[in-house]
Structures are given as C-alpha cells and as structure tokens.
C-alpha cells in the first residue's frame, strides 16, 4: 500500500513514452504541422481537439509515420522513429491505431482480422492468438461474432472489433483517429465505453475526437490545436472552464 502511494507521489517523474520535438509537416507552402512539441507519458490519456484543418489528425498519424513528417523528431520508447536506420514496422507493432472508418479487412472473418497480425508478426501460434482474441472479444461483448465477416456488423461493432484488432498486438500506446465520427449517434456510446474501460486499465492513449464529454471525463490532458500548432494544453478542467486563447474560446463555444 505504501509503495503504491509513493509511486503516486512521484507522478511528475512518470516515464515518458513519446516525445515530440519541433515536428513539422509541409505540403508545398501549406504547413499542416508547424513545430509541435509535446510529451506523452506512460498511462496517460491525451485528447487532442481543435477545429477541422487544425492538423490534429495529421499529428496523430505522424506519430506512427503514416504521415511522414518533413522535420523534427519523434522519440518513442527512447528511439528516434525518424532515424533512417530504424525499422518502423517493429515500432508500429507497439502502437495500436484505430481509424475513423474502421478499416477492417473485408475478406477476412472477424477472428482472422484480429489474429492475422499477432500470428504473422509476433509469431504466436494460431491457438494462442485465438485464445487472446476471444478474451478481448468477450471484453467488448462480441465473442459471438468471431466467425462473421465485417460486412455483417454494425458500425459500432466494427469499431469495437477494430479496437480489439489493435489490442491483440499488445501495444504500448493506442492512437485513436476520430473513432466515433463515422458512427450513427446511437452507436457512439458503445465505442466510448470500450475506450473508457481501456483508459481505466491504464492504457496510454492519444485520441483525436469531437466528443467533448469523453475528453472531460477520461482525459488526463487536453491539447488544443489550430493552424498546425499546439495553442494550449492543460487538464480538462482548465481547458473547458478557463481556456486561455481566443481561438480555444471560440472553438469551445461552438462545440459545447
């Protein structure tokens, strides 16, 4: 018990998982990312908000190099991901990603969707991978859909499967790129519920979302982006009750 308290007290010295230094992404003259600096700590839930076109998705997608930055550093678990000698595929295995449009593989069953990467990349046996998958499927309440194809599922179910697919690789961080934006309103709740329980279990998460309720309830830290820059960062309380910049005030007024 005392040990736990001690570790809680040491919170400011938490282990840094991702460090982003002066990250830039230019498309010709357009600066999609214009000098981003931030750190994501182990076990932290960071929610990134901002008006559309602010670069928040680009920022998230550059963390696992789906977008190739034109400048700066991304240091993930002590390794600079932009170093040419780095095997990016190895590090991507440690970063789960969930997309707005689910991107499940339509030609595979749900079980195969979830287990194909652990089997091929982690070298798990089929039996072990399927056991792991069934456990995760049970957690999101979709154990009975293991043999279905993605086309047979609703949007909310697809997104829960997409989360399970990423989790089955046992990543160190989960990146969520507007995970509920493509869902019908009645299905948003079930996906957010899965994300909340993930946060409770201590998963490190970076989430781009328009769900301010989720940000307020689950986030340890909220980042506000506009014009490719981080304008403000703070706890949900600070951000939602007393935003400092005009742009953040304007944005929050329009979405809350």
């Amino acid at each position: 018990m005392t040990i736990k308290k001690e570790s809680l007290d040491k919170k400011p010295e938490r282990e840094c998982l991702i460090e982003v230094n002066n990250l830039e992404k230019h498309y010709g003259d357009i600066r999609a990312l214009d000098g981003i600096n931030t750190k994501i700590y182990k076990g932290e839930v960071v929610v990134i908000i901002g008006p559309s076109g602010s670069g928040k998705s680009t920022f998230l997608r550059s963390l696992n190099l789906l977008e190739l930055p034109t400048g700066g550093d991304i240091i993930f678990e002590g390794v600079n991901m932009l170093d040419k000698s780095v095997d990016i595929n190895k590090h991507r295995q440690k970063m789960g990603m969930v997309f707005q449009h689910f991107n499940l593989f339509p030609h595979m069953t749900i079980m195969r969707n979830i287990t194909v990467a652990p089997i091929k990349l982690l070298g798990l046996s089929k039996a072990v991978a399927e056991e792991r998958a069934m456990e995760l499927l049970g957690k999101v309440g979709l154990a009975d859909r293991a043999n279905s194809y993605p086309a047979q599922l609703s949007g909310g179910q697809k997104q829960r499967i997409a989360i399970v697919r990423a989790l089955c690789m046992q990543p160190d961080v989960m990146l969520f790129d507007e995970p509920t934006s493509a869902l019908d309103p009645e299905m948003v709740g079930e996906v957010l519920e899965v994300m909340k329980s993930l946060a409770r279990d201590g998963m490190t998460m970076a989430v781009v979302t328009h769900e301010m309720g989720f940000a307020r309830e689950v986030a340890d830290r909220v980042i506000f982006m506009a014009d490719g820059k981080i304008l403000e960062t703070g706890t949900p309380d600070e951000m939602f009750t007393a935003p400092k910049t005009d742009k953040a005030k304007q944005f929050l007024a329009s979405v809350l």
Binding site: L66, M95, A117, L121
Partner: peptide
C-alpha cells in the same frame, strides 16, 4: 486498408 495493414506493423 493499406494504412490499417501498415499500422499493425506489416
């Protein structure tokens, strides 16, 4: 589909 594959580490 391509991004989903790459993001898993393929």
């Amino acid at each position: 589909q391509f991004e989903a594959g790459r993001s898993l580490g393929f």
